[in-house]
Computed example of a mutant assay.
Amino acid sequence: MNSRAAQLQAFDRLLTIMDELREQCPWDKKQTMQTLRHLTIEETYELGDAILDNDLEEIKKELGDVLLHIVFYAKIGSEAKSFDIADVANEICKKLIHRHPHIYGDVKVKDEADVKRNWENIKLREGKKSVLEGVPKSLPALVKANRIQEKVAGVGFDWEEPHQVFEKLREELAEFQQEVKSNHKERMEAEFGDVLFSMINYARFLDINPENALERTNKKFMERFQYVERKAKDIGKSLQEMTLAEMDVFWEEAKTMDKRF
């Protein structure tokens, strides 16, 4: 691996290239924080895909793309004489030191749960009015639900045992089924939301990341369905010409192939 000196040299090179692009490249010169925002979100999702695939080479590349965006925002900030990359780095260093008194102070912790509780309490002392202030409004609903539950659990608002959460899930499922019978769309949607929220909570208790779990299932389904499409093409048929029973034969083949790896 590279030495600290080599790492700093590489980062300095990136800052120099950013300066040059901002001055000389027509596209880079036009960018603002607003125009970069959606691209940053896209790059973050691409990094997430690479992490799910455990593709270290791709993770390295995607981290580079995300790092470029961080440097880009800092460059724009410096042009506005608001902040630069040193301010960005110093701000996060200051926050990390302040929120880790068990490392940089005299606070004692027993485990990870203590660390999380301290973290949330420190943020409240910093002036936050709610432990939920740090949950971004634009997060996808599934991810947001998980973060909400983690946040409130950090201050002790939580179930004690997994079986209690599972019983709550069963309760919510029963309420949802009751509304399905009534066929009242608005109430059905409300109860279905409660079911999903409870499922996510139960996953948290089992130390399962619900976003990762669902995305892995998405990828698995897509791979199996694309296998069905390929097999249909091999026999000269379109999916529209096949019966569900015929497609299901290939689906079962795809499932069998999954188990081989």
Results as ranks from 00 to 15, higher is better:
E42I: 03
H163V: 05
F221Y: 15
G127S: 04
E46K: 07
I97W: 06
F176A: 14
A245F: 04
D106N: 14
L15V: 02
H184E: 06
K116H: 12
H98F: 04
E253T: 08
K151P: 02
R147C: 05
V180K: 14
V107K: 13
F225G: 08
E150G: 05
A213T: 10
A6S: 14
R230V: 03
H100M: 12
A113Y: 12
K237W: 00
R224V: 07
E120W: 11
P136I: 04
G156L: 05
L36D: 15
D114C: 06
V143T: 15
F72S: 15
E42R: 08
I122S: 01
F176G: 04
E43H: 09
F176H: 15
L139G: 00
E91C: 10
E252G: 03
R187K: 15
A113N: 12
A145P: 00
R170H: 04
K259R: 12
W251A: 02
E43V: 07
A5N: 14
D158K: 15
I17G: 03
Y202A: 05
H100D: 07
A74K: 13
D84T: 08
D207Q: 04
Q7K: 13
E189C: 02
E211K: 06
L56H: 04
Q31Y: 01
I122C: 00
I148Q: 03
N183F: 01
T16N: 15
N54I: 10
M247L: 09
R22D: 11
D55V: 00
G77A: 08
I97R: 08
E23C: 13
G105M: 06
E179W: 11
K220I: 03
K255H: 13
K108V: 07
E133N: 15
A145R: 09
R170C: 07
E167Q: 13
D114P: 01
F11T: 07
P162A: 02
G154D: 07
R170E: 08
R22T: 06
E223P: 00
R4Q: 06
I103F: 12
L52K: 01
G154I: 03
E120A: 15
F11W: 12
A5F: 10
Q7L: 14
K116G: 07
R99V: 03
G193W: 05
P162Q: 03
G48S: 05
F166D: 04
E46G: 02
A74D: 15
K75R: 14
T40K: 13
Q240S: 13
I70Y: 02
A89W: 09
R147P: 00
N209F: 06
H184M: 05
K137R: 02
K110G: 10
L142G: 03
L239M: 01
L173Q: 14
L139T: 08
L8S: 14
V107W: 09
E160F: 05
A5R: 11
T16K: 15
L196Q: 04
A141Y: 10
K151Q: 07
N121D: 06
E160K: 14
G48Y: 12
M242C: 06
A254Q: 10
T243Y: 01
T40E: 10
I122F: 05
F11V: 08
K231Q: 11
A50G: 08
D55N: 02
